[in-house]
Design a protein around this nucleic acid. Structure first.
Lengths: 234, 234, 234, 234
DNA sequence: AATGAATGAGTTTTCATTCAT
DNA sequence: TATGAATGAAAACTCATTCAT
């Protein structure tokens, strides 16, 4: 029930303005309502009735526009991935010096997750289902993020300038950057419960952000002598 | 449906051997079956019928012994947390030199998650529900892991010996170590789908393990010059 | 399963005639079937399945239209009270001489109960539950029978004419009139069993009716000398 | 849960005193608990588990001692009727002058119902089931209350003395006396709801008692001229 | 005499989906 | 395009009763 309001209202207002039945607006309304419902309750917990009500429309229209609850779920996942991809595209890290570019990327990843609990909730749910909807979705493969390429280039630039150490894999780094923020948010409730500390406050989140940026940047730093390989630790 | 076999069968065999009805054995059987079912399908997706069948018992005993599906779920969560706590206790990091201790801890965290997909699935599901079951469980607070204290001590020892840099918060470090492994496993399917690469193979997991150990150990390394604060990056 | 036939069939026939789906008709059918089932078996003994079958509809519509078994029960109670209130309104006792008016009222009360075993059964069941459904129903308070006022006026008129004795409370009288008939019908089975006599035959009922009218009218008669207070008896 | 305490405790204490397992005490405990449970929830609403718990005994003993839930219900009904019969026997109305005897009988009937809500609840429930348990119980027929004979004799004595009018049927009178009190108590909740007045207070009950005694005694009074037949009313 | 374990057969309720207009 | 009516299939949960000790 978070921030799908804007889209929904826009659609409705637009529909009213045109003064005729507007299928596209209904689609958007349903998609926004579905996103909120699926994020809040998961695929199994979500109720088609509730989605229709959230959109202010009839339940039958879900089937009219999307075919089934599952298909609607896939549509929501695709939408949500499309959004983050758009944002990532707008980062233009290529224009910045390597370390600055990296700090910006880490910050963006963290802030995006902080601002989009829906995204996390939907991903978690989908992973809980074995990722079968994403696997089925042809469009996901096409979407294959160009971010990895960007990270690879940035790493190379940094290594050349002596800003980063050698031997860091771009995909591993991406997963690490994401994981350091993602886990904090996705497991916020259980971590809070276990450690009896509220990790959801603004301060706690800000502290975590500092830690993550610091942690990654330190891990990328070139060492006094090379200490890159795990086999040497211990 | 993973590895609840041993306990379950033991209980049953024992029960048969004694030749009398054994409520405790039934409890264990149900708990094991529930764990597998909840991990595989989540709280909402799990079927009480299926749990009973998995335990080779009838459905009503779930209610007899646990009261409700929800209570059974809480029992499973408590069980699963108790198990990891036990293992953590057995680590005895205090006896090792700081860097060795840290490598051992990172390795253990990674390997435990690699070996217990059930644990991840259950946590994810519980977080999807807002952590309400754990929050309700009194026993969780008591279980408050002494691991943080251990990490704190290890960090101090390392700093004193010049092995680790200063200013690392033990809780943040714990979350980072966990997150670097957890995210890889919990989102394995969607990551595989997005990047069109199978991250579930033995090799991929081994590569990830190396990266994580290396990443953390490097991040802990004391720098040539102090670079601890995030504000200095860029 | 008594006499809900007419309404139900009418609704269904009408529905068929119009040739479209008629939610209102379905509601009526369910209400009629529920009334019969609840009267026959009580709230706890009634089966939602049976009600649906009795209405020729499927079970889920009970929930669609009424929300729950309990709510349906309340709807039936309200319906049944509304019916008797309507009939009472049509009595127009105000136009008759006091004694005639009273005889008519007694007769009506008796005959209504004789003709509506459902009503008695439903009331008994509701009282067995502590009257909680009626207490919860706001509409009951509003329905507060204007009959008491009518009885009060009739009593006054009778006293003024020397037809009735003084000091009779209208509410007490109403309860007495109702009780003399109600107990006979509500406990007909146990009374018959205890006294080994069939009190359900037409003759037995007619005899009871005569007794009741006679009994009440005699009790209202003005005495040769005032003998109104209980303390003087004996 | 009303006043079965004394019996229950007595039984238990007695059992302890003898210092051995006492089947008879268990029977009594179960019967008392069953009575409370059946009165509170009716046959269908009552739970065998609850009865056993109420008696502080194992559920299986219900079956051991009574065979089935239904049979236990019959046993409770018989017990309850036996109790009222005993009390009635102790009235010894034959020794009093007719009007005094009648007042005493009316008072007793009223007070007994006022003091035994369990009795009313059980009767109501049994009537709701069509009286099938009482009909099946042979012992009921034998118990056929000698009260009717007593009333008949009292009426005759009164008529002879000019204290009562002629033509009153003893059975009808008994039903009337019972009904005037019974209805007030059995329907207390719904009457209170409908008339928006609490008829359960001590004052309200006392007022009702006065009305009933007065009402019946007036109805029995010999008239100035005969007004016995209903056909003459109006 | 007494008990905990176990079960078969229901019961209410839910929900995605389709039908008729 | 839009909607209210209707349904099949399944879900959690209940409960009287029997079994084994």
């Amino acid at each position: 029930m978070v921030d799908n309001g804007k889209d929904a209202v826009d659609a409705r207002v637009e529909s009213a303005r045109i003064g005729k039945r507007d299928g596209e607006a209904s689609r958007r309304l349903l998609l926004a309502a579905a996103r909120a419902e699926f994020a809040a309750k998961g695929l199994m917990g979500a109720r088609v009735d509730e989605i229709a009500r959230g959109a202010g429309l009839n339940k039958q229209l879900v089937y009219h526009y999307f075919g089934s609850k599952d298909d609607l779920y896939v549509a929501v996942l695709e939408r949500v991935y499309a959004e983050i991809r758009e944002q990532e595209r707008a980062l233009s890290l290529g224009d910045l010096p390597p370390r600055q570019a990296m700090v910006k990327l880490i910050g963006f990843s963290f802030d995006y997750l902080a601002a989009h609990p829906d995204f996390i909730a939907l991903l978690n749910d989908e992973n809980g289902q074995g990722g079968r909807h994403l696997a089925a979705s042809r469009r996901m493969h096409e979407m294959h993020s160009p971010l990895i390429a960007l990270i690879r280039r940035t790493l190379r630039r940094g290594v050349a300038l002596g800003a980063f150490r050698r031997g860091i894999d771009a995909l591993q780094l991406y997963i690490s950057i994401a994981g350091l923020a993602y886990f904090y948010f996705s497991n916020n409730r259980t971590l809070s419960a276990i450690f009896d500390r509220d990790l959801g406050t603004t301060q706690a989140i800000a502290a975590r952000r500092r830690h993550v940026v610091d942690f990654v940047m330190t891990a990328l730093r070139p060492g006094p002598v090379g200490v890159a390989s795990a086999s040497r630790h211990g």
